[in-house]
Nucleic acid binder design. Structure first.
Lengths: 202, 202
DNA sequence: CGGACCGCATGACAAATGTCAGAGCGGGGC
DNA sequence: GCCCCGCTCTGACATTTGTCATGCGGTCCG
């Protein structure tokens, strides 16, 4: 019995190399490749793979978004995510999007092939180190508004602009930022943004 | 005649896959692999490859640093850099470090093999799109100190801390930041940091 | 029903940051 | 030798920010 695999990664070098290596396994066959989020979705619809292996960072729509869409459209298709730099929050988001496997790109191709089989068999697999990080990072202490405001603050915009984009008063924005900063133990909102990013909370 | 290649990339998945694919070309042989900057250097010393293919982002020492060291120690070894997200400034730094090839990871393995041959033959190769970006971005308008201070400011540290780390007075730090901000056309130092990062100027 | 509590908002105040003018020093080019 | 430029600093000022006390409208629960 062979497993039909969809491969999505914007780095051609990796995608191609991976396709070649996975193709060597005689129980795996790569039926489609994609370089962007939307392309991955289209390919999945067209080829109905058993397992979709998605890169987390892709142009168009990230791996988690694609996973969410796939869950609705092709419930039989197991989704797993491969990522370069796994942030704890991403893992959480991925799991709640129904992703069955989550591995860093530091694993070997053999290992990846095994994990594809594991996932195809209906089991889950999460890289132990990433799982530990996620547990250590815990849940986001931020309220929805705080996270939203922090996101608007991400590119260094001044408070006035954040307030406008969030349709809040400037004072309110500063309060949210202030409480976010203290919850995260940061020195100011910019390092707060950085911290929240690292933990995957924004 | 075969080309002896050193492969350095911290993502095992990619490195392994690449090694396998390049190994298929009968004029290329991968003689060593490394996952970190220092390891790449050690491997190069031990195996004296004809061409070193380095990832730009690696733990320990980035590709450009390794290239600089290699240039001194093994002048006969041609160095090329492969990167996921090529920032204009990186290309510039790489070229002045004596790198002969600079390609994004979006190329195919075939293409990479060709480029390895090109580089081995003594020619240079730079991805056209990255080259265009680099030309468009131009030279950094920042003075050495401005860039240094901007780097210290990168993680959102307050002025006092930057001043201490740079061994400057706070007023001076603010002046440098101010001039960097105006040179970059940013709204504040945080977006200045972001801009300088994007252009590869820090 | 009434109180406790939470998210959200406001305004006032304190601290940090951005901006500007000026000034001494040293190196490199003409 | 002289001038220009970059480096460093100072002091003063406007603006932006962070912090806090407080108020208002909900929901949950006894």
């Amino acid at each position: 019995m062979t497993v039909r695999v969809l491969l999505a990664d914007d780095e051609h070098l990796i995608r191609g190399a991976l396709a070649a290596l996975l193709g060597l396994e005689d129980d795996l066959v790569v039926v489609a490749e994609a370089a962007t989020g939307p392309e991955a979705l289209a390919m999945a619809r067209a080829h109905r793979p058993d397992v979709a292996v998605l890169d987390l960072e892709m142009p168009g729509a990230d791996g988690v978004k694609v996973a969410t869409a796939l869950r609705g459209e092709l419930p039989a298709c197991r989704v797993m995510i491969v990522t370069g730099h796994g942030r704890p929050g991403h893992l959480k988001r991925a799991l709640s999007a129904g992703v069955r496997g989550f591995v860093p790109k530091t694993v070997s191709a053999q290992r990846l092939a095994e994990i594809i089989r594991t996932v195809h068999a209906g089991n889950r697999y999460v890289d132990p180190e990433l799982a530990a990080d996620a547990i250590a990072a815990g849940d986001s202490p931020l309220t929805a508004r705080e996270a939203e405001v922090l996101e608007f603050a991400a590119d260094g915009a001044p408070v006035a602009e954040i307030a406008e984009r969030a349709a809040l008063s400037q004072g309110t924005v500063r309060n949210y930022l202030s409480s976010a900063v203290s919850k995260l133990g940061a020195e100011n909102r910019h390092s707060a943004v950085r911290l929240a990013r690292e933990r995957g909370w924004v």
